[in-house]
Amino acid sequence: MAKLSLEELRKLRDEKRYELDKRETENKDTEIIVGMGTCGIAAGAKEAMQAFIEELNDQGLSNVAVKQTGCMGLCYSEPTVEVHLPGMPDIIYGDVDPETAKKIVRKHIMGKTLVNDHIYDRPAADIVKKD
């Protein structure tokens, strides 16, 4: 990537913002976002990530992206995972061990059913989106 000029940065921002927004709308892609801070990794986020990838493979689901992010603040319930799925509200799961990861793929992503006892909530509203 060549160095950006001011105009190019602004253009890039608009493009990427559009992509991020697209996630929120109906025809967004399915995403599993795993919290990969030190707290998440210590609690087994890497194993959970691996389990997601394996289960998605086993089930032949190729349209699901597995991504990573930092600590959301819910360290007591790590590993935490956020699932974006078209037609479903965005959901945050906590205490996701490999078993639960498989359940999330089978029940939530394939069955459109939430997985009991593992749902958490974002700790605060988003100040970037609100305007």
């Binding site: 990427k16 991020l20 992010t69 930092g70 956020e82 605060a124």
Partner: peptide
Amino acid sequence: QLRVVLRNCGVINPENIDEYIA
């Protein structure tokens, strides 16, 4: 809670500058 400092933590992929820029 009000997340000013941590506004992007747990939202963006920290290894992807594009998400920060967005």
